[in-house]
């Protein structure tokens, strides 16, 4: 599982994104290391989600290039990303509300293997149910697998979403503010889960609460007004004067 730390899994070459005349992201070049837990931080509206969406394929960049494992993935349709080995959870909870918790993960698990199979009964496909059950145990939702996803609490739905993202066995997991709107308790559970998941795969985590990720991540990217302000280890970022001024200064201290 764990490759040499110097191995780059994902890189962006001066990617940018505009919405009409508004520049949401400008010229961001960065490399993400395989096996690392990298956080993208920045104040509200910094362009984190925009950048995240370029990495996960929900948005095509207006300029620049995204490379995953040496392959140019710029502008590929969203559904191709799961097939390549990239999975994500959204900033806003995104599950199948009227399906059971187990079916949510099962659908995600079958996605790469049974695309247009209209004939064989899916109830007989034990492999996907097994994957679903295993992942539900991982994210702590196994006891609630028979309930509708809409019946879960907010924090549980976020966990379910991560379970669904894991179902494609991604080599790169992208998480956009997985703790958004959570209680302190739910947040702690979620952060524990992320740390646990990070031991086995590459994770890129978007977060605007810097304190939350400082202790757990290997590297940090700081975005501000759509630009990459700084990049480095948590210690380097903590010491960075510019970051202190524009980010730590205004929000945390």
């Amino acid at each position: 599982m764990s490759a040499p730390v110097s191995d780059v899994i994902l890189r962006t070459d001066s990617v940018g994104r505009t919405f009409g005349k508004f520049v949401a992201l400008k010229d961001v070049s960065a490399e993400f290391r395989r096996g690392a837990l990298t956080s993208i931080i920045g104040p509200n509206g910094a362009g984190k989600s925009t950048y995240f969406n370029l990495l996960s394929g929900s948005l095509a960049p207006s300029s620049g290039k995204v490379t995953f494992e040496g392959q140019d993935v710029t502008g590929l349709p969203q559904h191709r990303f799961a097939h390549l080995g990239i999975a994500k959870s959204f900033q806003i909870t995104n599950v199948f509300p009227q399906l059971s918790v187990r079916e949510n993960v099962r659908i995600a698990a079958q996605a790469l293997k049974t695309r247009f199979d209209i004939w064989r009964p899916r109830a007989g496909m034990a492999e996907f149910l097994d994957v679903a059950d295993e992942l539900l145990k991982t994210v702590g939702l196994w006891p609630r697998r028979f309930e509708l996803a809409s019946a879960l609490a907010h924090g549980e739905q976020r966990a379910l979403e991560i379970g669904m993202a894991l179902a494609s066995r991604p080599r790169l997991l992208l998480l956009d503010e997985p703790t958004a709107g959570m209680s302190p308790e739910e947040t702690r559970t979620m952060m524990d889960l992320i740390v646990q998941l990070a031991t086995e795969r590459t994770i890129i985590l978007v977060e605007h609460k810097m304190k939350l990720v400082m202790g757990i991540c290997d590297r940090l990217l700081v975005l501000h007004h759509g630009e990459l302000l700084a990049e480095g280890t948590p210690d380097e970022i903590r010491r960075n004067e510019t970051v202190k001024r524009v980010y730590l200064g205004q929000r945390e201290h």
Binding site: A82, H83, F96, L99, I118, P121, A123, M125, A165, S168
Partner: peptide, 27 residues
């Protein structure tokens, strides 16, 4: 048969949440 097949689950997933279905890898 169609409804009980994997594809039957896919179309319900798309009805429930198109963006999620896409992120799962469905065209």
């Amino acid at each position: 048969r169609i409804l009980a097949s994997p594809f039957g689950a896919v179309i319900e997933g798309i009805r429930e949440n198109e963006a999620r279905a896409r992120a799962c890898g469905y065209d």
